[in-house]
Amino acid sequence: MLQIEKIKEETYDTLRLLGEVDASNSVLLDQAMQEVLQQGTRFLLIDGHELSYISSAGLGVFMSYLDDFSEQGIRFAIFGLNEQVAEVFHILGLDQLIQIVPDKSTAIALPHVS
């Protein structure tokens, strides 16, 4: 089960993921990312506090937007991942391409990486 909440704030958009991202629902995550991008966000945050599991299909969604983010200069960060989920990002090496930080305030304070 996956629920996605979209929270729009002045300088950034947050997608709050609740539950699990697996092969069956990764398309929902993809749609949500797509919508936020189309609305012209400049700074996208993923709130992973309630994310209990992410499969390789879910990781693939994040991965597929990395080029778009760097091309359009969109800032992107993930925060609040539990240890197990963070480990998944680490094993794949995605933590070297995505800013993964402990909490929201750290995420907002991140410098703009071009």
């Binding site: 993809d30 299909a57 990781l59 693939g60 969604v61 991965m63 094993i91 794949l92 090496g93 995605l94």
Partner: peptide, 28 residues
């Protein structure tokens, strides 16, 4: 675009009793 592959490779030399290993995002 949204697919990737993870892999592990071991090159074993039985004479030297050693293996050279590289990991590409795969489970350790």
């Amino acid at each position: 675009r949204n697919h990737f592959i993870t892999a592990s490779i071991f090159s074993i030399d039985t004479e030297k009793q050693a293996f050279c290993h590289s990991r590409a995002g795969h489970v350790p």
